[in-house]
């Protein structure tokens, strides 16, 4: 109880990290619902890794062309953002262009993941200035969240949330029945691209803030949990976002209280909720079948 009071106190030392965690937990599932609905879940593994490769690549290029960058400076964040965003968006657009060709989708995503993971390590190894701090930036170091980066995160995520809700009927139509959207003469390519842009931005910021593991976890796990208990699109999105925020908070509490690594703790809590909800659903289903003659 004391830990909870301490965490909620305005003077809590890691307050910015806590807010950053909850923001990532809130927004990643909101865009993640479209990963689940469009059956692009495995993209959620490859894209955060691609984002990390982009960060490593931008540092490497900067090192070669300009020289060493200074840690904790704005240029470092800017470099990471440019690298992460450009790699994520390029990867998303290329992989999404083949979204309808289902036959080789796993192979393409698997290759993307393998190349991205290898490239990340190679870029870091090739950069003589790479050190522990940079590696932590690649993995996402939420405890190092500053007020500036938190402000950027809050501003960009607020815009993403507003756009996801403002254009939800367009995103739903092109995702659920693309042919109908074409018959209605909607600009399908534009809406797909806008959705991918919002997803790409969320992943880039998520990876820089919390790392690939947490970003992938929150893109996929809360929406999968929410899908088990909701039957309407709006409630599906809201429950997924709400679950993400709550599990991020509980994960943060557990990590702080029991001295565990933050990212894995958050994903573990979200996964436990998924297992509990799925088990409850299975028990209810079995009971219904048993009652029915």
């Amino acid at each position: 109880m004391n830990t909870l009071v301490e965490i909620l106190s305005p003077n809590f030392l890691l307050r910015q990290a806590l807010i950053g965690s909850v923001l990532v937990g809130l927004v990643c599932p909101l865009v993640g619902v479209y990963f689940v609905l469009r059956r692009m879940i495995f993209l959620g593994v490859a894209l955060p890794q691609l984002s990390a490769a982009g960060i490593a690549c931008s540092f490497f290029i900067y090192r070669v062309l300009v020289g060493p960058h200074q840690h904790f400076e704005l240029t470092e964040r800017g470099l990471a953002m440019i690298g992460s965003f450009s790699f994520t968006l390029a990867g998303l657009l290329i992989l999404a262009a083949f979204e309808r060709h289902r036959e080789t989708v796993e192979a393409r995503i698997g290759i993307t993941y393998a190349i991205a993971a290898a490239a990340t390590i190679l870029f870091v190894a090739a950069d003589p200035g790479a050190d522990a701090h940079m590696v932590s930036l690649l993995k996402g170091d939420i405890l190092a969240t500053t007020s500036t980066s938190l402000g950027v995160l809050a501003g960009v995520f607020s815009t993403i949330v507003l756009m996801m809700f403002a254009f939800r009927k367009e995103f739903l139509l092109v995702s659920f029945d693309r042919d109908l959207a074409i018959v209605f003469r909607k600009r399908v390519g534009f809406w797909d691209s806008l959705l991918y842009l919002l997803i790409g931005t969320t992943i880039s910021l998520g990876v820089m803030t919390a790392g690939p593991l947490v970003t992938f976890g929150f893109l996929v796990v809360p929406p999968l949990t929410a899908r088990l208990v909701t039957q309407r699109m709006l409630t599906f999105s809201l429950v997924a976002a709400g679950l993400g925020a709550v599990t991020a908070f509980v994960g943060f509490y557990c990590a702080y209280r029991f001295d565990m690594p933050l990212g894995p703790a958050e994903v573990a809590v979200a996964s436990l909720v998924l297992v509990a909800v799925a088990a409850a659903g299975a028990v209810r289903h079995a009971a219904d079948r048993w009652r029915t003659p």
Binding site: V36, D177, R232
Partner: peptide, 23 residues
């Protein structure tokens, strides 16, 4: 007014009957 073959629509979308018609 287009009525596709219903198998082309993915059952993963959580939609009520009314939401489908509203579309």
């Amino acid at each position: 007014g287009y009525v596709p073959q219903r198998e082309t629509l993915d059952p993963i979308f959580p939609l009520t009957v009314f939401e489908v018609v509203l579309m």
